[in-house]
Write a protein that binds this DNA or RNA. Structure first.
Lengths: 337, 337
DNA sequence: GCATTTTGTTTAAACGATTAAACATACCTT
DNA sequence: AAGGTATGTTTAATCGTTTAAACAAAATGC
């Protein structure tokens, strides 16, 4: 700006006013024109850092997901990127790997960078961190994850109902012994899925056997899923259906099922939460509980914008689950392009 | 910092020195201790924006991929995130959607934010933008994409050899009519894949028929892939193998193949570039040309760091392709957990 | 005991923008 | 012509850090 001012022969203040279209009508056309010309001529580029320092606004939001390479996270990231872009925000992201320390460090990094707001999928056990930023009045929205007892902005799925619908459907098609493969976690979205599963069984007069529920370690799931599925199908009275708690669990579980020649849906009906290409390419495309990701991302961004604008209300949204029925629970093969 | 200084009764300069561990040995232990205590007590958080302004370094790198929700991009993003984190860099990202304007706007945004360097997968037709930042001496590395004629840092795959290996393998298993489904694009990585495919055929004494090569529009591929595959298998002399140029093309193509009861590998052998969960769950897990993503991300980051440190050499790396042979080209079903 | 060095701390300018307030000038009024 | 208003531009402080240079006091050397 100094260079432009010098070249045109005016003060930097005037350059700033022109380039930001402020004080319109009070600046002489010719000078404004000249300033703009000189700016392009000199390849002037706003120093957003300096601007941010002065205005106390970075137009940046921070996004923390569990792992950006997971299709659920990356699909969400893409939607948030688009929504942010519409409002001229840029996104800084980080993956927490479901690790409290890492998530804390990431939050610090992002906040040091003065992000205007945060969208978080916090890991199990990060209540303190959430309370911390809440106390500091930092605008943020939780997504997918929620901590009962801490009032915050939140956008997620009606997970209870999702499981309920899934179990009802399985019972409808004649399954009586429904297994669940989920993470061993107290995360709200997961406990709700478990609760919905149990409620679904009991609503149908089925007593849920303990041995039907398999909880795998969230940091070691690859190894444990195979074993879980194996146990479910080979125990004394094997299950005739499995509900997978997430698409990642399902993907890995299906590889085992594939490899061992288990017939879907004849031997075993399958339902999974989330959707992803992988579940479409299975020979019996999976019935799944759809999360309306676009709506969730849009809602999260809208709430965050309100919050950054000073709103102090907390908004909590549980999006409706939708069960998309396909071949893995008996519908004939059918593909949609 | 002002608050800390005031509370401890020293100047802000001293606070800065202590908090940055500068001038070690010249600062009295007691005061240093007190400053640190007060800092935590007041929940002091470095204003990275102010620091960046002063030091002219943001410790931030920009990443532009075509679409963060595509598994190739998000896997790469994750690796780059990890590598960046090791060096205390934060990543700002954006998706270009293979669109030159969007990519240009993104580059501007990131550069205004004073990123220290860029990792780019530039879209077709963005030569000017690349020349621009090259002239401005902005540290950057191209990844996956390359523009012959513009000397830059680059990390990618030996795409030519990848296709070559694929075709050789297909010929080995007795296929003589190999189709290619790729994007209609002049992007270097894609033209190399085409060139390798042609070279492979001619090396095996097969004359490549024009009607074996299908190029789909990069912005409208969903619609065009189905038609392409359909044409390939239903023309007068149908192909007996298809090589897909990317995992996205393969995923969509496979849905069509699945839906139409085409038997893989008996009717049609399939090979795809890239790897992703989706290609594992197909009933005949796909033979694929593996890109060493981790090595690529690490190399890109290393080159970028050198470049940001002032190196003016250009490094170009073509990583070796590895053909991973599985059921879609005849190997018996076999799963690895 | 005086000069010199070492130690510990402060001063003040700078980074590149924004913006309220002050300052000129020109233009209306009556 | 005097006062007021409108127009166009500059002055200067500020955002929260960093850091060279200056400074003061204590320790050391001879």
């Amino acid at each position: 700006m100094k260079d432009i001012a010098q070249k045109v022969g005016v003060s930097t203040a005037l350059v700033s006013y022109v380039l930001n279209n402020k004080k319109e009508g009070r600046i002489s056309k010719e000078i404004a024109q000249k300033i703009r010309e000189t700016a392009t001529e000199l390849h002037y580029r706003t120093n957003q850092i300096a601007k941010s320092l002065k205005t106390n606004k970075t137009s940046t939001i921070g996004l923390i997901v569990s792992d950006i390479s997971n299709p659920f996270s990356s699909a969400l990231a893409r939607i948030i990127e688009d929504e942010a872009d519409k409002k001229e925000y840029t996104v800084i992201f980080g993956s927490s790997d479901e690790n409290v320390q890492k998530s804390g460090k990431l939050m610090d990094t992002l906040l040091n960078r003065q992000v205007d707001g945060l969208i978080l999928a916090p890991p199990e056990g990060s209540e303190m961190q959430i309370l911390d930023i809440k106390e500091q009045d930092i605008p943020f929205v939780l997504i997918d994850r929620y901590f009962p007892g801490i009032e915050t902005n939140y956008v997620g799925l009606d997970n209870f109902d999702g499981s309920l619908q899934a179990v009802n459907h399985l019972v409808d098609i004649g399954r009586k012994r429904v297994g669940l493969v989920t993470y061993d976690s107290t995360l709200f979205n997961l406990t709700e899925r478990l609760r919905g599963y149990q409620a679904g069984l009991s609503a149908n007069g089925i007593e849920c056997a303990d041995c039907w529920v398999k909880k795998v370690n969230i940091h070691n799931f690859r190894e444990e899923i195979e074993q879980s599925v194996q146990e479910l199908v080979s125990q004394e009275e094997p299950v005739d259906a499995i509900l997978f708690g997430t698409n990642v669990l399902a993907s890995i579980g299906l590889k085992y099922i594939n490899a061992n020649g288990i017939k879907v849906p004849d031997d075993l009906a399958i339902i999974s939460f989330d959707e992803t290409d992988a579940l479409d390419l299975f020979y019996a495309p999976l019935t799944y509980i759809r999360q309306p990701l676009r709506e969730m991302g849009q809602a999260a961004m809208k709430i965050l914008l309100d919050c950054m604008a000073g709103s102090t209300e907390f908004t909590r949204i549980d999006m409706p689950s939708e069960l998309v029925i396909r071949a893995s629970t008996g519908r004939k093969l059918e593909f949609v392009f």
